[in-house]
Amino acid sequence: MIALLIRDLRLALRAGGGFGLGLAFFLILTVLVPFSVGPQSALLSSIAPGILWLGSLLACLLSLDRLLALDFEDGTLDVLATAPLPLEAALAVKALAHWITTGLPLVLAAPFLGILLNLPPQGFVWLVASLLLGTPALSIIGTFGAALTEGIKRGGLLMSLLVLPLYVPTLIFGAEAARRGAVGMAIETPLLLLAGISLGSIALLPFAAAAALRMTIR
């Protein structure tokens, strides 16, 4: 399992690995928002948590295409499916690698981009906390979506349609936690629900993804 994680991280960091794709998208989106909304700092600071959460979600979605497709094309998935490593574990590790290369950089970049969007000072901690709790769910749900649509040529559109509704609860509670944090309200409820979504997805979706993948690679 560790070998698979190291290999995925190494591949992501080498040329053409797609590391930074999501981060660049996130950067572009949040840098452009103040230009399109206009220089109204009150408005910006009220929409900042929502924009940052939406940007993270879309950046995650953007990188899902490559999650399994590359391994499918070069035959790695076939061999992995016949290897002693259970497919459930392999997919969980791939989701973890996706989170480390996509989710974690987004979490780390968000506070800096929060400054651009005039995020109130008390909101930074909760923004980072909510992203830290929520982005693992985005990665594992995305892995499930990628497994469902594997083997379909140009399956990206179908995958987006499948994954987006599943992303909505994470977005609602994540953005709500960040927004409440920014205006100084109690954040326990949305934060707990967000953690619940993440833990539930991490516990269940590797099995669902492996079942879907067994169906799609044959």
Partner: peptide
């Protein structure tokens, strides 16, 4: 759990060296 399968595709990663590719598969099989 007794079969090693080699299909039409080689299961090699273009951006890893030959040794890295083989080491990865060796590690997967323990």
């Amino acid at each position: 759990d007794t079969v090693a399968y080699a299909g039409h595709a080689d299961g090699l990663k273009a951006m890893l060296s030959v040794a890295e590719n083989l080491q990865f598969w060796a590690a997967v099989y323990g």
